[in-house]
Amino acid sequence: MRLSDAPILERGHIFNPSYVLVTAPSLLFDPTVKPLEGMADGSVLFVNSSKEVQIVQPKKVHTIYRDITELALKHIGRDILSAAMGAVACKLSGLISLQSLVDSVEEELAELGLAADLIEKNVQLAKECYSSVESISLRGLDYKPSHKVVEVQYMGERGIPDLLSMGNTILRKTGSWRVFTPIVDKNLCTACGICYIYCPEACISLDEQGYPVINYNNCKGCLVCTVECPRRAIKTERETIWS
């Protein structure tokens, strides 16, 4: 969305963001995302997390942590965060009133064809998120341009878009997608291996005795294992490892 009284001449990439909102802490470490880039002293970082995350902050930025996912679960019962994050952005910037926020949540979700009760739940979620943070006004942000134009070198065969490192998505910590964490109850588990078979992500391996071992770095928390387990031996807990 682009909205201003004056023409906005930025398009696409925002080089020097005043406010950065991060929906999942793992994104802070993703080399393909780099959300902190270009932030100036005094700008604002919001992270959807119940606790502080160790990050190397290049600048003195206001950092705020809130567990928005928890609020989404409370109101909607699912980790759908768009209204929640939008509400946080509205409030942080101090530019958009609560009424405008509510109006637009109602309008946009109605356009998507959501049922009235679900829209109302989203409104309640947005309202709570709105009140969960304070506005932070920005003054005199000092952006230091750090871009140097370089010459592109011809790289020969390395300049061909072939991928030679196989099976390397394991580096992507999709565990941060999880809202609920599957936990094997060793007392109930019979080592039947069914959870291992039905895990779409290959995140469950079997130990020497045939008991499942879950790879929490990558488990997205789809919870197919909890449903497929014939003994209901896999419990779920609200995710805490990542947030």
């Binding site: 390397n168 998505t169 992507r172 999709t174 039947c192 779409p200 990558n218």
Partner: peptide
């Protein structure tokens, strides 16, 4: 189901949605 081969050719961390049926089939 005990006869399902143990060797994995697909590792975790794909960007596909959680619970994707296609991913399970491919695996």
């Amino acid at each position: 189901l005990k006869d399902v081969p143990k060797e994995e050719f697909l590792v975790a961390g794909t960007p596909l949605c959680a619970g994707c049926g296609a991913l399970l089939v491919i695996r």
